[in-house]
Amino acid sequence: VPQTPIRAAMTSIQQLRGDLTSGSDQPSSNLLVYYKNCTVDPSGEIKKRVEELGEVFIQRFAQAVGQHCEGLGRKRFYLGAQLYYKVMESMLKSEEKRLSVQNFSKLLNNAAFHTSLLACALEVVIATYVGSSLKNGGFGRSSGASDSVESDLCFPWILSVFQLPAFDFYKVIESFIKAEPTLKHDMVKHLEQCEHVIMESLAWRTDSPLFDLLKQSREEGPGEQAEPPAT
């Protein structure tokens, strides 16, 4: 049954909230087991980072949407944190199966990984509330829901809030989509559009970590032979 843009947005929101049924923005007992298996227990740092990034997010949300909307920002962040922990657990299960390891100390103590994952979860929450639209991306905007003031929060807003390089954010996108099969088609498409904007533009900004990697790879010298041009 065709839906109006507002109804579609409300359905997406209900579904997102329904999928996050734990009602808690804290790590599950399964996730705590992964933390305990680490050579260096990351629990303290993870909790501290989520709290700090939460305060930053709520402040910037209020700046963008209106100071009277701080409570709304808190709700958005709460949903985002739930999704972050949910996807983290799913990713770790998947990595455990793929790599046959249980000790993810390096990954779970990696700040860029956590910031990227949290940013991606929040991007999903924000995009769900405003409809899948990109700011200035030339990809067109969905009507209805995206006319709200929250449309100012569209990608790449979250990158500036967390001072997160687009190149790092890019690294979690595919794994996020794999780890969260309940993501709606629109949301997958939105994340795919974020990938394209990063690949085409954001990853090539002056301060991108991509340039250090390119420099490093040049210093290491030619490795494998380049693939011959495809026919």
């Binding site: 990713m91 990595e95 790599l99 993810f104 990954l107 990696n110 979690v172 997958v188 498409k189 795919e192």
Partner: peptide, 21 residues
């Protein structure tokens, strides 16, 4: 997740992407 192009190979995941393998 239909229509999304999954490009990562079996030996590629967040552990490798964040240099944590």
């Amino acid at each position: 997740s239909q229509d999304y192009h999954f490009g990562l190979e079996d030996h590629e995941g967040v552990s490798e992407l964040f240099d944590c393998d």
